[in-house]
Structures are given as C-alpha cells and as structure tokens.
Simulated scan of single mutants.
Amino acid sequence: MDTTVPVDPALALKQWELLRNTLTDLGHTVHVLDARPGLPDMVYAANGAFSVDGTVYGARFKHPERAAEAIAHQHFYAGGTWNFAEGVHVNEGEGDFAYLPGAYGGLILAGHGFRTDPAAHAEAQEVLGRPVISLRLVDPAFYHLDTALAALDDKHITYYPDAFSAASQRVLRQLFPDAVIADRADAEAFALNLVSDGRHVILNTESTAMAEKVRAAGYSPVHVELSELKRGGGSVKCAVAELRP
C-alpha cells in the first residue's frame, strides 16, 4: 500500500469488472454492493461481514474511515432473509474469518494480531454456533487472515506458515496435515488472497507459483489481473464477500 504510487481508477474498474465476469462465467451468482461516496475501500467487500448458514456476523472496523462500510453491508443483508448480528468487538469480516463446512463438522478459522480483536472470535462463535480456532498473525505484511490463509474447498486449506505464531503453526499442522504450503514469495504476491469454489481457484496473474501448487493438488487455477486493487492492499478475496445462505 504505497501511497506515493497512484492508482489508475479506470483500469481498477476494468479489472474489477473482469473479476465479476470471471465469477459469473464460472456459474456463480454475483451481487454488487452499490458504491457510496467517500468510501473507496468498499471495493474490498470481504471485510464488511462474515456469513455462515444464513446467519451474518457484522463487521466493526478498526479504522474510523471505514466504519460506514459496515452499515452499507448491514443494509444489504437486511434486504434478504439473513439473520444479522452486529459485531460488538472490532472485526473485519471475512478478512479475518474463514469457514470450512466439511472440516470437523464445520470449523471457523479466525485471525488476530493486527486488525480483529481476539474477543471477536468468541463473539463470532456465539453468533454463528460453530467452533472458532484463533490464529495469531505475527508479520505486519500479512495483517488479515485472508492474506496468509485460504480455504480451497470444504475441508482443505493453503497457508503461509511464517505469517503465524509458532503455536498457531502447530495448530494448523495438526488440523490440516495435508494443506498446500505457500512460501513468502507466494504470500507477498497476494497468492493466498484467492477465492475457490472447490474446483476453480481464482488468483491474481502474479500468482504463477501458487497456481502450479494448487494444480498439483487437483484444482484448476484461473488468473485475473488485479494490479490496481493490489495497490490498495487487496486482491481477489478482498473484493469478494462469499454468501453462505
């Protein structure tokens, strides 16, 4: 997130549209959250909430500049049949939460250390009724869980070990002994900031090494150019809030 390097807004929009079209071409339904003046970070839609089986745990952003985004996300869910719970503790939605419905009967992985308050993990467990595993992030380059770990399908993950504390690494090794292991070059290319439907793994175009790793694990990588969104600190996953009705 180098503020001295300008973003090309027209190109950013073109790349966002490419991501949306890629998802629809793969057969997914895409809802678009309307932009609001003064909230440029709304493009990172993953941060506004976290949903599991029709229940939504709303975000409470750490930085006041993004606070109004949580309200916009709440209004979106209010228009449907969702059971919405507003977060009391600081949390940044799917930025720091991942759900694996097929792992251990349904497991939530949750990150803390830079943005999300650890107390939000217990709060999410009460709201969503699923066990939450707390993982401590220790490298400021990977400030959200979704920069260091991703679900590849209902049971399997990929992650960069050194983004986590030694104890959290032991937990991940125990829970996911067959995980796809990323290296620092993968993580710095935002290769772990991906979206997977269990078959297709959507990555940014710089994530060539990770693409080969997921291909070897049996998935089909799909590349999308997101250079301008990466300038703001996010890639594929940051721009997508996954809905789990």
Score class of each variant (00 low, 15 high):
128 L>C: 07
198 G>F: 04
81 T>P: 00
190 F>W: 11
68 A>L: 10
212 E>V: 05
191 A>M: 03
86 E>I: 11
236 V>S: 10
62 K>S: 13
193 N>E: 07
213 K>N: 06
201 V>H: 03
198 G>Q: 02
174 Q>M: 05
73 H>F: 15
150 A>L: 09
237 K>C: 09
120 A>P: 05
5 V>H: 11
156 H>L: 09
187 A>C: 10
213 K>D: 08
106 G>V: 04
56 V>A: 04
208 T>Y: 00
239 A>Q: 14
71 I>R: 15
201 V>R: 04
201 V>C: 13
99 Y>P: 03
16 W>I: 05
11 L>G: 01
117 D>E: 14
148 A>F: 03
177 P>Y: 02
98 A>M: 12
40 P>I: 06
16 W>Q: 14
109 L>H: 04
186 D>C: 08
171 V>K: 15
91 N>H: 12
211 A>W: 01
229 L>W: 02
213 K>H: 12
130 R>Q: 14
168 S>H: 05
160 Y>T: 01
215 R>C: 06
245 P>H: 10
186 D>F: 01
93 G>N: 04
46 A>T: 06
34 D>K: 15
234 G>I: 07
62 K>R: 15
176 F>I: 05
200 H>D: 13
216 A>Q: 14
186 D>S: 02
60 R>E: 08
66 R>V: 05
72 A>I: 07
232 G>E: 11
88 V>D: 12
80 G>N: 00
171 V>F: 01
37 P>C: 08
106 G>T: 06
86 E>W: 06
164 F>W: 08
87 G>P: 05
216 A>W: 05
228 E>T: 00
4 T>Q: 13
195 V>W: 15
204 N>M: 03
6 P>I: 03
87 G>N: 07
66 R>T: 08
56 V>E: 03
239 A>K: 01
219 Y>C: 02
17 E>Y: 03
239 A>C: 15
122 A>C: 00
120 A>D: 01
157 I>T: 06
184 R>E: 15
95 G>K: 00
54 G>E: 11
161 P>A: 09
49 A>F: 05
29 T>A: 13
232 G>F: 13
116 T>G: 08
111 G>D: 02
162 D>S: 13
232 G>W: 09
207 S>C: 13
160 Y>H: 14
151 A>W: 01
60 R>P: 01
167 A>D: 12
